[in-house]
């Protein structure tokens, strides 16, 4: 057992997508410092249920930082501001006794709030569906060394492929821009040979879809990179811009 904390929570409560929402305050008493942030919310929810109140709705799944489901802005920073981690990997030992913690959902027009801390992130799915895949028929499992990939390219592709699509980049960006997400997805596929046949089509389709979904533009402030739980670099956005520009030129659109 770690130390026990008494905290005050200010949580965004919103009954449904149409509700205007408000902050409500709760006491979180006897919070173990070894708990994760989500476990702390679970405990608070049990207390709420015992009192006959509606528990706080929030998204979570794997609780080990690989699914990208937990999405909340903790004290103004997506995932709580601990470098390179998701909210479920944030532990209560990062907080001090008596602190007030404010919890809000992601805020972006493209991510409408469904209830409390739950937002609808299907805009990301639609961007992926527009081109974030390869449709080359590969037959049975190929030999591991059948398609050589340079070490540097493989490393870079893996860096980009770390993106878990949590949406913290959109949540942190002052323009609610999804460019870091799209850049990661695009770079990951365009760096490896398997992604080459559809490279241009993919760049055009994904960027176009991103704009359609109502995300903002990149003004190169670096907020996305700062909060990304997978520490995806801003340089991928430059790569995406280059991919998109080259695709426009090759397709003769410009």
């Amino acid at each position: 057992m770690g130390k026990l904390l008494n905290l005050k929570l200010r949580v965004w409560r919103q009954d449904n997508a149409e509700d205007s929402g408000r902050f409500e305050e709760y006491d979180a008493k006897g919070v173990d410092t070894d708990m994760s942030f989500l476990e702390m919310l679970d405990v608070v929810n049990e207390d709420l249920l015992e009192d006959g109140k509606e528990p706080i709705a929030f998204d979570s799944d794997c609780r080990e930082g690989i699914c990208g489901t937990c999405s909340m802005v903790i004290n103004g920073t997506p995932h709580g501001g601990q470098k390179g981690t998701t909210a479920c990997q944030l532990h209560m030992r990062q907080f001090s006794d008596g602190m007030t913690i404010t919890i809000e959902p992601w805020r972006a027009s493209a991510f409408p709030v469904q209830r409390d801390l739950v937002v609808n992130r299907s805009a990301f799915d639609r961007i992926q569906q527009s081109g974030g895949f390869i449709s080359v028929r590969s037959g049975s499992v190929p030999d591991a060394n059948a398609t050589p990939v340079a070490k540097e390219d493989a490393d870079l592709a893996m860096d980009a492929a770390q993106c878990i699509g949590c949406g913290a980049c959109v949540a942190a960006c002052k323009n609610a821009s999804a460019m870091l997400f799209v850049a990661a997805k695009l770079s990951h596929l365009s760096l490896v040979p398997q992604g080459q046949p559809e490279r241009e089509r993919r760049a055009l389709a994904m960027v176009q879809k991103m704009d359609e979904e109502g995300f903002g533009s990149c003004t190169v402030t670096g907020s996305c990179e700062a909060v990304c739980p997978k520490e995806i670099s801003l340089d991928f956005i430059a790569r995406m811009n280059r991919e998109y520009g080259m695709a426009l030129i090759r397709k003769g659109t410009v």
Binding site: G76, G80, G81, G214
Partner: peptide, 17 residues
Amino acid sequence: ANKQAREVPYKSDVLPV
């Protein structure tokens, strides 16, 4: 366009950063 991308602003302030 960027203002429109976040119609509902955040209500809380940044603490950790």
